[in-house]
Design a protein around this nucleic acid. Structure first.
Lengths: 140, 140
DNA sequence: TATTGTTGTTTGTGCATGCAAATGTATTTC
DNA sequence: GAAATACATTTGCATGCACAAACAACAATA
């Protein structure tokens, strides 16, 4: 059958998984009014106020251009402000942004709970670690 | 540190991995002139000539709209033709398409070899299966 | 201090992909 | 057999994201 034909291709399998988890994440983050990556960006900024865009990119594994635009949008929504310092631009949360963090944290937990409900706590943790390590191994 | 803060989120880990393997796949499929998903579509069509777009979507786990557009593009490149049969549209390879399959198969093997070189054969297979099963579990 | 190189950010552009609504075709029901 | 329903495809629209080139600030060197 056709499906089994692709089953043993890692690109294919990873795509499948990624679409599934992304969909889940999008649903869970819906109450925050942000899509997951934006929300993670907010968390990173809260965790390290005044963080540089470069650092953000490193932390979230996204490209500088993506960071620029995401931050732009978050700023437009009034959730962060940037202050440019020499050639770099530092980001922090606004009070509105800080307020919003509550829902975001909650959504994060929900996402976690949701896949743990399917996989079990142990398995969820293991799989996550595995994915992370695998990703690290494959990226140069 | 910030990175470790996100390491145990599955959405995050899956994204990391997916970007890594996608990049790899794109590189390996470059000689085919197609990006990986198009190439897989070609393979699926070859495997089951006259396949319906619905079936294609099922096999590749992509949305009907995506299929429509991909097929459109492949048809535009002269690699497939579609013949509409009632409400559905069947796809098959053109001779040009069939010729192209050689490079595609080769690229597919290269991709495989490439991650096997990093992970080992056994591990590569295991990981792929794991990803696939995980994806299946998480998608409803 | 003018030049050259390095590094962080931004902008232009392009693509994969999904969702929701529209369209066209088949099937059922009355 | 006309109307309603179901199903496959297409279209309109939006979004996330990357790459490459441009830009801006800083550092080093001659």
């Amino acid at each position: 059958m056709l499906e089994s034909y692709f089953q043993n291709c890692m690109f294919f399998a990873s795509n499948l998984l990624n679409r599934a988890i992304t969909k889940m994440a999008e649903e869970e983050f819906k109450p925050t009014g942000l899509s997951p990556t934006y929300a993670f960006m907010m968390m990173a900024v809260q965790e390290q106020p005044g963080i540089t865009q470069k650092e953000l990119g490193k932390a979230l594994h996204v490209t500088p251009s993506t960071i620029t635009r995401f931050i732009e949008k978050l700023a437009y929504k009034g959730l962060v402000i940037t202050r440019s310092e020499g050639k770099m631009s530092r980001v922090e949360l606004t009070t509105l942004g800080i307020e919003r963090m509550e829902v975001i944290r909650e959504a994060w937990k929900s996402l976690f709970r949701r896949y743990v409900a399917i996989l079990g706590k142990e398995e969820g943790r293991n799989m996550t670690k595995m994915l992370y390590d695998l990703g690290k191994q494959l990226e140069d």
